[in-house]
Amino acid sequence: MSNKFPKPIPPDLSSFEVKNEKQESVVFNTFWQDTPALIIFVRHFGCIGCTAQMDAISPRINELCNLGVNLVIIGNGGANFIQGFKDKFQLNDKPVSIYTDPSLKSYKLAEMKRSFWTVFSFRSLADYIRSFSKGIGQSKVQGDNWQQGGALLVDQEGMLHFHFQNKSVAGIADTNDLIAAVQKLMVSQKTE
């Protein structure tokens, strides 16, 4: 994807289906039907990157709700891992939806990185050390180990306003940058 925003979401991604914990299919474009959607792709549900991402975003979930944004998390593990993920990060009563795409097609359509070197790079080694220093450990692999995550911000017209690719295991988007992008979008919509 080019770096010029806003730009349309690829139609194949817009119509792609992911699964919820009950294995029910949900089409991507329903995420931004009524309100903008902040879609965060995580790695498999047990990794330090996912933990780092959720630890960063969890304190700001209510803020995102107040901003009027639909927060969606997409993983790539089995649907049976979703409830455990929700329990681990205390998300059961939070305004956030979690889905999974074990096929990784939505990751590819969203241009998220997947490679051996994104897991075994010096940057990822630094991520592991940093995570361990914060008491965050690696759990059992619950999905594809080579797939990295990222973030998208999409408005109600299906236009993309923010796109971030994680380049390493815990190389997540700065939460302040995510909030800034959301605030900018909501300010532009608020006065229209």
Binding site: R60, E63, N66, L67, G68, D174, T175, N176, I179, A180, Q183, M186, V187, K190
Partner: peptide
Amino acid sequence: LPELRTFWQKLITEQLFK
């Protein structure tokens, strides 16, 4: 100062979007 930036963003959210 990321922590200050977070504080400022929360102030903006409270003011503009609640």
